[in-house]
Nucleic acid binder design. Structure first.
Lengths: 154, 154
DNA sequence: AGACTATAGTTCCGAAATAGAACTGTCAAA
DNA sequence: TTTGACAGTTCTATTTCGGAACTATAGTCT
């Protein structure tokens, strides 16, 4: 498989995987949603090698998920901020966190709790149908070939 | 970073990443949700090397995401079926598909369309708050340390 | 019987990615 | 003038991956 052309496959999952389908990228995005923005901050909180961090940040910028914004002239310093495309990854991250909470927990309990500022309560993320609002289950979904069809995911 | 103990980190995202945080695993899961179950079928539809496929399937079985079920005695043959823990990955996969549809599309249009059998309509997956039912946005979520706290994701 | 096919892997080796540590460059503050 | 903060880059050893060939078990075809 050619990872360098995965983002052109006729499958939306492949295209997403091309961008965020590796361990470090997902962990970097976690930090982004926790408001981490600077090289040193990513590096020290993740213990990622500087080399890989540099490469991954470049990739995320290239794909339009992060913007590299100067926060200091002389010396020129930049920080990395989520674009709207990056912010839209939130459901993926939250879905993973929720799955981890549910299926990979230990006796210590959840590492983090999430409060919804709108309603003020601690919540779990739930994925629902945009049309009827019911929670989604794999069995209840039927897949059709779309215009850019070929293969893909249920 | 020690990938072999990532599943014990006090962070639910890390624990999820430990299991599904690589390209092949995510693509294999896509196939699972499309009802692919057998070694040869995975191999030919993904063009993954047999070596890696074998290793990834073992890992998914070890983590309880797939079950290895015999479908033939003599010769002994097995197929791989999603457990409930595996089925619960559906929101992650769907969130990724939806993000790919939204942000990585090309002129050909969506590769696949999803129909909700319950309401009969083509839909998009939407992530909502379990308490108030409103769609979730990163900005509207406040993170608290939980009992197994230390660090983790927003 | 012997050859061929199907399925589910395992083995081996060269190529690519990663980890770990050291090094570079710019500027401000002491 | 030296030190420290920050944001990287460069280098090498190790690990993982890709690609192809090989193994094993049994059924079917001639």
């Amino acid at each position: 498989m050619k990872w360098d052309t995965l983002d052109e496959e006729p499958c939306s999952l492949s295209r997403a995987v091309a961008v965020i389908g590796d361990r470090w990228t997902l962990l970097i995005l976690r930090e982004c949603f926790l408001r981490v923005r600077r090289f040193e901050a990513f590096q020290s909180s993740l213990q990622i090698t500087r080399h890989l961090l540099s490469e991954r940040l470049k990739k995320l910028v290239r794909f339009g998920i992060l913007r590299r914004v100067p926060y200091s002239e002389s010396p020129k310093r930049y920080e990395y901020i989520l674009t709207q495309k990056g912010l839209d990854l939130y459901p993926i991250i939250m879905a993973m966190v929720h799955w981890g909470d549910t299926h990979m927990g230990d006796e210590r309990g959840r590492p983090l709790l999430h409060e919804h500022k709108i309603c003020g309560k601690l919540f779990d993320p739930v994925m629902v149908c945009s049309e009827c609002g019911e929670p989604l289950q794999a069995r209840q979904v039927h897949v059709h070939a779309g215009p850019g069809r070929d293969q893909a995911v249920g």
